Amino acid sequence: MKKKLYLLASILLVIGILTACGSNKGSGNNNASGNNSGNEAKEAKQTFDVQKVEVTPTELTGENIDRIKEKGEIVLGTSAEYPPYEWHIIDGAEDEIVGVDLEIAKVVAEKLGVELKVSDMQFDGLLAALQTGDIDFVIAGMVITETRKQAADFSEPYFEQGQDIVIKKVDEDKFKTIDDLAGKKIGVQLGTTQQEYAEANFDAEIVAIPNNNNMIMELKNGSLDAVFMTNYPAEQFRSRSPEDLMVVDFDIPNEDGSGIAVKKGNSDLLAVMNEAVEEIKAANAIESWFDTFMKLSEETE
């Protein structure tokens, strides 16, 4: 039965952040790369309503479910520099990670009746952390691929989106088609499906960079000629520098759907993830969350 949908008119709740040793690699760039501080960020958060999903507690049991319930918390692994999926908002001493993926994680935690903890790390280290047990699940706009399915088990997809190229505005007349980028330097995030696609399909020098914020800075300073990423984050980075950057659509095929990853073999926990995805889809919440967090990202720049 479809669950009822309602609006929660309140401030975005602060999610406890668990910083594992070494998990914040490269995070020294956070403040300089679109994370906000002070009263402006706080005021912006207060104006946004986040659609909530009516969550049914899971009746599933299993070794991993029981372990998490006994511990009283579940640890999410994510890479919080990818708005509107997830990014930092800093208000004085308060560092909050917000975004679409965090809302999904809240649903998972609520289904299990436990507290949500967040471990923020570089994207290319997420599946390794899952395998070593440092985190319980991954939600980071991670696309389901055959290669990744060898390292982790994935839920049903919760979202699919397109892929775009970001260039400097001054190069608008220079790069009209993807062929115009032949031999040029195109930045991609390390370990992503954009890296795989670009290396297989673009006749260009592909530069893999761990951090999206650093990649955009490399584009601005001329070290890169273009950046290849999914369209929501591409639009967010453009909106932060509308005088300098633009997004161009070269009819690149959509990427495959994004899913929630758990350690391979954790079938009981995977079943909970699929329950959460089903409830979220039934409530049509994903589109609403993207709209909300796109706007919030622009307001808190």
Score class of each variant (00 low, 15 high):
209 I>D: 08
9 A>H: 14
122 Q>E: 06
18 L>Y: 15
163 Q>D: 03
150 Q>R: 14
112 L>K: 12
118 V>P: 06
169 K>I: 07
177 T>V: 12
208 A>W: 01
72 G>E: 00
116 L>V: 09
218 E>T: 11
115 E>Q: 12
50 V>P: 01
292 T>L: 01
297 S>N: 14
123 F>L: 12
78 T>N: 09
151 A>G: 12
185 K>R: 10
164 D>W: 01
26 G>T: 04
239 S>F: 11
174 K>V: 06
220 K>C: 13
63 E>T: 14
49 D>V: 07
39 N>D: 00
139 I>K: 14
135 I>T: 07
162 G>P: 02
104 I>L: 04
27 S>P: 01
290 F>H: 12
98 V>S: 07
274 N>D: 07
257 G>N: 13
47 T>W: 10
258 S>M: 15
297 S>F: 05
153 D>F: 01
208 A>Q: 04
141 G>T: 10
202 F>A: 08
291 D>A: 10
246 M>L: 14
300 T>H: 04
80 A>C: 13
86 E>W: 05
243 E>R: 15
85 Y>T: 11
163 Q>P: 05
3 K>D: 08
258 S>L: 03
71 K>D: 12
271 A>N: 03
214 N>K: 15
181 L>H: 15
264 K>W: 00
134 D>N: 07
52 K>D: 02
131 Q>L: 03
299 E>R: 13
95 D>C: 02
146 E>T: 12
15 I>P: 00
239 S>G: 14
37 S>N: 12
106 K>G: 13
237 F>Q: 11
11 I>G: 08
196 E>T: 15
290 F>Q: 03
91 D>I: 13
168 K>Y: 12
11 I>H: 09
245 L>M: 05
281 K>A: 05
83 P>G: 11
131 Q>F: 02
178 I>M: 15
202 F>G: 00
250 F>S: 07
8 L>Y: 05
266 N>A: 09
66 D>V: 01
160 E>K: 12
56 T>G: 02
35 N>E: 10
234 A>R: 00
188 V>I: 04
77 G>T: 00
258 S>D: 10
225 D>I: 04
222 G>H: 14
284 N>I: 02
166 V>L: 06
165 I>S: 13
87 W>P: 00
104 I>Q: 10
134 D>F: 09
196 E>R: 09
156 E>F: 05
65 I>Q: 13
187 G>T: 04
86 E>S: 15
279 E>D: 04
176 K>D: 13
299 E>K: 15
51 Q>M: 14
1 M>D: 02
290 F>K: 07
180 D>P: 00
268 D>V: 10
146 E>F: 03
8 L>A: 11
106 K>N: 13
143 V>Q: 08
224 L>C: 13
136 D>I: 06
116 L>N: 12
200 A>K: 15
57 P>G: 04
243 E>T: 15
64 N>G: 00
94 E>A: 00
91 D>L: 01
293 F>L: 01
169 K>M: 11
111 K>Y: 09
45 K>S: 05
215 M>L: 08
40 E>C: 03
223 S>H: 13
73 E>K: 12
281 K>P: 04
67 R>P: 01
218 E>L: 10
94 E>M: 03
89 I>Q: 14
159 F>T: 06
239 S>L: 10
140 A>L: 04
280 I>S: 07
77 G>Y: 06
122 Q>P: 04
232 Y>Q: 11
107 V>D: 10
8 L>W: 06
